[in-house]
Design a binder for these strands. Structure first.
Length: 850
DNA sequence: TTAGGGTTAG
């Protein structure tokens, strides 16, 4: 199997349960527990066992410690009878393991001292609790805290209680943290660290407002000797940043100046970061310039700040200055620059910087890889993506001590990269290799989004349904809903789209709602329900340029060009940003409704909006002129293009040639496409259509032979329709449906009646060099006609029949369906690969522009 | 106690 080497056998490192048997992994250290400094004082000086005679064991242990002979310390302790004066040495070893993030050893030592009947003291518990917090193991933390309580360390030992608050905060047991804090306040035994711990818990919990209220209360309690310290400020500043509250952030800055804490490089960095995140990059830069002591974090914070507000050139300039000044370029600086490129879709540049980073000897980590992968995904760079995957397996993933969350992010980045590079097989294999419980909403969404964009939309919707079946364990978020709607839009799954619409309204998605509503407009537009699209648009409390452009696309696709132009004019009047995409949609709308002169005028005035016409705008214009039969003007425009005409331009010209039966220009376009080595699906079919329209049967045969020799097969036409019993799909001449007999009988009857009304089969579309009567029969079997007959048989009278086709609708089918629309009580809404056709009472909304 | 990262729309 192609992707065997990608099958991961992942061992989850979860902190499972109770002390003493734990399965460990380390996490980055973020804690605000302060540990008793006096633990460093030799025990003899606290309470010598016998002040006049030095304790020889203590002396031995002290010597071992100062010589760094830690294993000897353990050996001695094991042979020494428990003594409360010598617990210091156990604590020292435990403290050392905590600082090295060696949690396994922390618990091992703690268990061992207890097994040997030593009594942990008020210094032991804070360290062990900190280890539990680092592990975010609530079960372990609660056991240790319970042990501390039964051993008498409660509400009387501020160190133990502070450590327990921090531990509960880090483990997400927020209520427990708060309860303990309140008990400390009631008992009057607390200090600055207690407040810092609970505030930090609020910040970690994401409740910035409560954190700020607590901080305010803390600084107002100077009467009881309470004062905020540097740690308090560094804790609270990210909360200001996350609320984007410049005012509160500036207040904290002012407080830090008043208290003389701003010269602390940690505080300075945090203030700078706050300003950058609040969008006040100049204030951040001013502070940076004034800071007498800067460290690598200061530089990195500014590089990141510039990168994230779009001033990426400034970020790069600063990065170069770091290089010149020989400031350590650590993994954060490199990753920030790589992410900056990736976010701008500059994947190759991101990959280059990643290579430089490796050469420089700086060790990439999970964050770096996620950034590089995002760059590879953005530019569809599949080979560098695979190389990064190999690098990840060899150097980053599944290492001892890795945060499993970080590893998962890399895997999610890999899934996204493979999906965006259209390699859905590998993306899915990676997805399958992750245990269900380890898949996050991002994992699901990355794959669903991949299928929705580059794979089978049906697979995307199948996965979405599977995710919903997972129940409350796996709730889709705004991203997931958007991806599912993209998939619905692709296949015109109106019924499911409506259900997702209802689902989105039932579940509040907050800020993501504008995204979802825009996707809904697009879904309704592409499923042929313009009224529903308009209703969503009208009811939006907030609209952005995408909402307006989506409506415009809708009107354009449905042949309502005048309304599309009106939307554009309203957008313009409302001062919404008009960009290249807006113009593509506007010109497309004009083209599909035959609004030629106004379209040309808009094209000529694009520069007034600050938009430089790109190749895709020229393609729209070629389409517009070509559809209107002005093929020579289209050719002139291509000749005068300031850039090389890309394949889309030539395909537009070719389509117009088919419409107007122009063999000469059509051949020219095909030659240009072949020169560009462009493998357009249906290129030869289009050319043979042109020959067929001109009745040049020899050329038709020549092309057919050419296709046969080259092994090119015409993509089969396929139509689908949502009947009462679900979606039915039909191919040309399809006789597999259980209702085949009824479908063909009805179709023959309709064609017979249409002929009486004046319908003459347009046999050139049959593309077979057979006599006309036989061709007429072949036309009957086209997939769109079969889908229509099925639609009539299974749709309630009066209800519209919605048909989708993967290719452009055939000209004969278009005529036949127009006639049929006079005989039946349904509106017929047909979506082909190019636009919508609304058939009613014998005419079509496209007015011949298709 | 500070800096970096993954999934969505025209």
């Amino acid at each position: 199997m192609e992707c065997c080497f990608l099958q991961f056998s992942r061992q989850t490192t979860a902190a499972t349960a109770l002390v003493p048997k734990l399965c460990f992994s380390s996490t980055a250290a973020h804690h605000c527990v302060s540990l008793p400094e006096d633990d460093l004082i030799q025990p003899q000086s606290i309470a010598p066992s016998s002040p006049s005679e030095p304790n020889p064991t203590a002396q031995l242990l002290s010597d071992c410690l100062s010589d760094g002979r830690h294993s000897d310390v353990i050996t001695v302790l094991r042979r020494t009878p428990p003594s409360r004066y010598l617990v210091f040495y156990w604590n020292n070893l435990i403290k050392r393991s905590v600082s090295f993030q060696d949690h396994r050893n922390v618990f091992h030592l703690f268990d061992e001292m207890r097994r040997l009947q030593w009594k942990p003291d008020g210094h032991t518990y804070p360290y062990v609790l900190k280890a539990c917090g680092d592990l975010t193991s609530l079960a372990a933390g609660m056991s240790i805290h319970a042990l501390a309580l039964v051993s008498g360390f409660t509400n009387c030992n501020v160190f133990v209680d502070n450590a327990a608050i921090a531990m509960y905060g880090r483990c997400g047991a927020f209520d427990k943290a708060r309860q303990l804090f309140d008990e400390m306040l009631e008992g009057g035994v607390f200090d600055t660290v207690s407040w810092n711990s609970i505030i930090s818990a609020y910040v970690q919990f994401g409740d910035s407002r409560k954190a700020l209220r607590m901080f305010k209360e803390m600084v107002s309690r100077g009467d009881i000797g309470l004062r905020a310290d540097a740690v308090s400020l560094v804790n609270i500043l990210p909360a200001c940043a996350s609320l984007r509250s410049q005012r509160r952030g500036a207040e904290v800055h002012a407080y830090s100046v008043r208290r003389g804490l701003i010269d602390d490089v940690f505080v300075g960095n945090a203030v700078m970061d706050m300003y950058a995140k609040c969008g006040l990059i100049d204030d951040a830069k001013n502070l940076f310039d004034r800071m007498e002591v800067k460290d690598v974090v200061s530089w990195n914070a500014l590089v990141t700040g510039y990168s994230q507000i779009g001033k990426f050139d400034d970020a790069l300039g600063l990065f170069d200055r770091m290089r010149e000044k020989n400031i350590e370029l650590n993994v954060v600086a490199w990753s920030a620059v790589i992410a900056g490129y990736a976010q701008r879709g500059l994947g190759n540049e991101a990959i280059d910087v990643f290579k430089q980073m490796i050469v420089s000897g700086s060790q990439p980590n999970a964050v770096t890889l996620v950034s590089v992968l995002s760059g590879c995904a953005a530019s569809g760079a599949s080979n560098p993506g695979k190389e990064t995957h190999c690098y990840a397996i060899k150097q980053v993933l599944n290492l001892e001590g890795n945060d499993p969350g970080d590893d998962m992010m890399v895997i999610n980045g890999l899934i996204d990269m493979y999906a965006k590079c259209k390699n859905l097989k590998v993306a899915h294999a990676l997805f399958d290799s992750i245990e269900m419980k380890n898949r996050s909403v991002v994992t699901w969404t990355a794959l669903i989004g991949g299928y929705a964009q580059h794979g089978e939309a049906g697979d995307a919707l199948g996965l979405f349904a599977e995710m919903l079946r997972e129940g409350c364990r796996m709730m889709p978020n705004g991203f997931t809903i958007s991806c599912a709607l993209v998939a619905c839009a692709r296949v015109g799954a109106l019924r499911l789209g409506r259900e997702i619409h209802a689902y989105a309204l039932r579940n509040r998605y907050g800020d993501a709602m504008i995204f979802i509503l825009n996707c809904l407009i697009d879904m309704y537009v592409k499923s042929g329900d313009m009224d529903a699209a308009r209703a969503v648009f009208d009811n939006m409390s907030q609209k952005n340029a995408v909402s307006w452009t989506s409506m415009m696309t809708g009107y354009g696709m449905h042949g309502r060009g005048e309304e599309a132009v009106q939307v554009f004019e309203k957008m313009r009047a409302a001062g919404l940003p008009i960009d290249g995409v807006t113009f593509v949609v506007l010109l497309y709308s004009c083209s599909h409704s035959g609004i030629v002169d106004q379209g040309i005028s808009y094209f000529n005035h694009m520069k007034d909006f600050g938009v430089v016409p790109a190749a895709e705008h020229y393609a729209c214009m070629v389409d517009l002129l070509g559809r209107a039969g002005r093929l020579d003007d289209a050719m002139r425009l291509i000749r005068d293009m300031p850039m090389q005409a890309n394949p889309i331009v030539w395909v537009s010209l070719l389509s117009s040639c088919r419409l107007h039966g122009n063999v000469e220009i059509g051949e020219h376009a095909v030659n240009k496409l072949l020169e560009l080595k462009f493998e357009v699906d249906g290129l030869y079919t289009l050319l043979s259509n042109i020959y067929a329209s001109a009745k040049q049967w020899k050329d038709v045969a020549r092309i057919r032979l050419l296709m046969k020799r080259a092994g090119i097969r015409k993509r089969p036409g396929c139509s689908w329709v949502q009947g009462r019993h679900g979606t039915a799909t039909f191919y040309v001449g399809d006789k597999t449906h259980p209702m085949t007999k009824e479908i063909y009988d009805l179709l023959h009857d309709l064609i017979y009646r249409a002929k009486i009304m004046g319908y003459v089969p347009e046999t050139s579309f049959a593309l077979h060099d057979v006599d006309d009567e036989e061709k007429g029969d072949l036309l009957v079997e086209h997939s769109e006609k079969l889908a229509l007959a099925y639609g009539i048989l299974t749709t309630t009278p009066g209800m519209p029949i919605r048909i989708m086709k993967n290719l452009r609708v055939c000209g004969d089918c278009h005529t036949a369906i127009s006639y049929i629309s006079r005989m039946i009580e349904h509106d017929i809404i047909l979506r082909d690969s190019s636009r919508f056709h609304h058939f009613k009472n014998g005419s079509c909304s496209c007015k011949g522009y298709w």
